[in-house]
């Protein structure tokens, strides 16, 4: 007989039951299976009502993040065997509203991401005929790491400050702001500072560091925030000591 492993999945079906509850499933324990395969097995073979998000199955789209045994992970990247002998507890990502079962509300996150103006800002655009904006490999490496983010939101679920201060703009959005601040083609840092040097911005961070621990893409948002704090402090002292040079 095939060995199985026990999955305890947090269900939330608002039209039936106002309270979430754990439901248990026995799934085959196959060597090559990740958690997402087990969820797909449940959906196809045991219980078609289970809802969750996924798409690429290869750690690229960022949609399959869940809390597995209390830790935020990408379920398409994490093997069942790691949790031998089980049980495995699966719940929606921490600190997000739940729409149904494992599907969370992402609007707040998307709004935060947009707020940092994650695009190249120029005071004056070059005319197309003047050619492209060239960049050396060194200039690219300044920000490349921060451009690897897949918006999986694991870092928000890992961050206790996000839990306590829901308005905190959060790790991924700050790392994304740095992705543009460190891009030599960009001139928008001052506009981003208006968002990130306020009370909801970078100084909410108390350097817990969990965001960088859980990030599947090694973006190191905690490092991005620390670097931003130094920039923010420099900015503050300049505006106090040279009040006439600045607006």
């Amino acid at each position: 007989m095939e060995t199985t492993i026990n999955l305890q999945v947090l269900r939330y079906i608002p039209e039936k039951d106002p309270d979430p509850f754990y439901q248990e499933y026995e799934v085959p324990l196959r060597e090559e299976w990740v958690i997402l395969d087990a969820l797909n097995y449940i959906k196809d073979q045991i219980d078609g009502t289970l809802s969750y998000r996924w798409s690429c199955r290869m750690g690229v789209c960022g949609s399959c993040g869940m809390m597995v045994n209390e830790k935020p992970i990408l379920t398409c990247e994490t093997f069942l065997e790691k949790y031998m002998p089980g049980p495995i507890r699966i719940a929606p990502l921490n600190y997000f509203g739940v729409i149904r079962d494992l599907v969370v509300e992402t609007d707040g996150f998307m709004e935060k991401v947009k707020r940092v103006k994650p695009w190249i800002i120029r005071d004056k655009e070059k005319a197309p005929l003047e050619g492209e904006y060239l960049q050396t490999p060194e200039e690219l490496s300044e920000y490349k790491q921060y451009s690897m983010c897949i918006n999986c939101m694991l870092c928000y679920s890992a961050c206790p400050v996000v839990g306590l201060e829901p308005q905190f703009i959060g790790p991924a959005a700050i790392a994304l702001a740095q992705r543009y601040n460190y891009d030599n083609r960009d001139e928008g840092q001052n506009q981003r500072n208006d968002v990130l040097l306020t009370d909801d911005g970078i100084f909410e961070c108390t350097l817990v560091g969990e965001c960088s621990e859980v990030c599947p893409k090694k973006v190191d948002p905690a490092g991005a925030i620390q670097r931003y704090k130094v920039q923010g402090a420099t900015e503050w002292w300049t505006s106090v000591l040279l009040p006439f040079g600045k607006k």
């Binding site: 968002v195 009370d199 402090a233 503050w236």
Partner: peptide, 11 residues
């Protein structure tokens, strides 16, 4: 929004 004065304390 107003910029925060936390950079001072943080320094």
């Amino acid at each position: 929004k107003k910029r925060s004065n936390d950079p001072f304390w943080w320094t």
